[in-house]
Design a binder for these strands. Structure first.
Lengths: 228, 228
DNA sequence: GGCTGTAAAAGTGTCAACACTATCAGCCAT
DNA sequence: ATGGCTGATAGTGTTGACACTTTTACAGCC
């Protein structure tokens, strides 16, 4: 009675996803149905459905009869995502602070003492989202936004100079959660993400300033997808 | 050639969507590919892709080799959606208050003076989401959550006794926006939605209380996935 | 009579071929 | 030579048929 039947669509979905995350298909790159079908040894049908699903998840953009392309994330997109995260993750940590059992809380704290800030930055955010008890918020954060974040960071490293502060802010949030002060934890989380947003905003400002003066910015011409 | 090419998948997508909204396919009802294909005079391929898209948007749930079903929203789902809305719409109105031009703001106020609270309740929320300048938030609210709300309300009328209060709260929010107090508008919006959430919570409590005590005939539910 | 195993039916998953649309190269007129 | 037109080419949209899985019905057995 094991449920997961893993149809070919799922396989192709994960396959394309990996190709995008690994950068084999670059951001903004073309997604060719026939090529992918041959690569995964399936017909074009499953590929089409997988692409449709990726499209629904926002990783691929496409218009009828036009080539599908991987989403091309710029700083402006990231700011929009961070504004959304600021609100949703605030709620996420508030709900988690109220919903988590004492043992879950202790386990969370223990894991992060162990890691000592080594783990990837998103780990705490994922962990909180999974504990908040609201499946829709969990899905929004874990299944949609965090993938886009990973995609963006894979291309252009996370904003410099943030990492040291971020770790301290994470510990503040954890302390707020431990003391069961849901509103405090929410405020801290929102401030935490708002600071990152501000960093992105500064990056955008300098970028546009640079883009205005020298103006070598070639419009992104079609990037050929290199086949392996 | 400028207009969207409207492929058959889009047509079928909208068609199924209308069938769900109109209740012709009830909540939790089965979505049969062959039947729909014949109804819309197309092959099963476009139907499959449309169903996949609906699935990505959360209106249809489905496991491999099992029949696809329209999502069955209960009060608990609605509470989760409202918790999400409380955070996101707070951000939405905050951003809109800052981003809207004076003329947009005046037009908004004028339209709602004209309507005098007649318009459907969601109109103001939609309007604000479309003005917030963050396309991702706009899409989340308008393209995902509001459809689910309409679906739920179509089945079980909105929580009674709320409408009169809601109108007053809407005007408060509008006044906050007009005075360009983004934080105030955010607080008012969050409180506005939190009150609706609380009403849903009370509904859930009485429901479960009733379900526990009398223990009436077995719910004739067809196989529903049970979550832990 | 109730239960189990098996076969038919219904429904979903996949495929390969065909139809339609956009893109690009080359040709003609200006 | 330049700009627009016209075919060839590549890629997407659609289809009907076939393979696999689940569900249902029925016969045999306890």
């Amino acid at each position: 009675m094991s449920g997961q039947q893993r149809t070919r669509v799922d396989t192709v979905f994960d396959g394309i996803f990996d190709l995008i995350l690994s950068g084999e298909i670059p951001l903004g790159g073309v997604v060719n149905e026939a090529t992918l079908a041959e690569r995964f040894k399936v017909s074009r049908g499953p590929v089409r459905e997988a692409v449709k699903a990726l499209q629904g998840r926002g990783l691929i953009v496409k218009e009828p009869y036009f080539k599908a392309r991987v989403v091309d994330l710029d700083v402006k997109d990231m700011i929009e995502i961070f504004q959304l995260r600021e609100s949703v993750e605030g709620m996420s940590v508030k709900l988690a602070t109220r919903a988590m059992s004492d043992e879950s809380m202790n386990r969370l704290l223990h894991d992060f003492e162990q890691a000592g800030g080594n783990g990837r930055v998103l780990d705490l955010h994922v962990r909180i989202a999974k504990e908040c008890g609201n499946r829709r918020i969990e899905s929004l954060l874990c299944d949609e936004l965090y993938y886009l974040l990973r995609l963006y960071r894979a291309r252009s490293g996370s904003t410099p100079g943030r990492h040291d502060n971020a770790s301290a802010e994470h510990w503040q949030i954890l302390r707020g959660m431990k003391s069961r002060d849901a509103e405090l934890a929410e405020s801290l989380m929102r401030a935490h993400i708002a600071r990152a947003t501000a960093a992105l905003q500064r990056l955008l400002d300098t970028d546009t300033a640079n883009a205005n003066a020298p103006a070598p910015a070639q419009p992104r011409r079609e990037r050929k997808e290199s086949e392996a």
